[in-house]
Amino acid sequence: MKKYFKDVSAIVWKDTLSEFRTREMLISMFMLAVLILIIFIFSIHLGKVKAIDVAPGVLWIAIIFAGTIGLNRSFLNEKENDCIFGIMSMPIDRSAIYFGKMTGNFIFMTIMEIFIFPVFIVFFNLPIQNIPGIVLITFLGTLGFTACGTLLSAMSAASAKLRYMLPVLLYPLILPVVIAAVQSTGALLYGKQIADIMSWLKLLIAFDIIFISVSFLIFEYTLEE
């Protein structure tokens, strides 16, 4: 068990180190999220629509689109220079690769979210309340997104044609995360308490558990040749 954690953390360390040396993925994720917020604000005209009604949806669209960039890069970076063969020939369990990659993606998305939240609050003029609840929702939602996305990104890196298909494959599957996250973020922004969104929280937790355990079981089939 101890060795397993060491394997996972080695992959996480490698990913974060190489990302923080260049920071190009984080910057492009963050800029895309900011631009999505801006474009949506222009398209909905906040003078006519109540900001609080549309804000959660826009926020999660921005997070998911930006997160897709990260997922796309995640295994593509390994494909360049054929690093993937090095990773595959490591004497570790294949699922450790999955957890390492997933944790890496999760960390990048969380950093991006930490930066995008203030921008979001400022742009939409939202009240700052229920911060723990929103943090919890974001944590669970991002976990579900990366759990499902890392599995698919390992597949999509294999072929150039499939790379453009990642959103087509991923977005229908993460629909429960989107619905739950948007609804509960909206409820929290309206001043409701965590107790009011328990059913959404349960859904998110169920999604996370199911997708992490299923990916744990079938990830090895995505890395074979």
Binding site: P172, L203, V214
Partner: peptide
């Protein structure tokens, strides 16, 4: 076959979750 099988499995497992989330929504 391998990738399609992985997607076929997670797609089917996802259906009850989608169903539940839409029902709540």
């Amino acid at each position: 076959a391998r990738y399609a099988s992985v997607y076929g499995i997670i797609g089917f497992i996802d259906v009850p979750l989608v169903h539940y989330s839409i029902k709540l929504w």
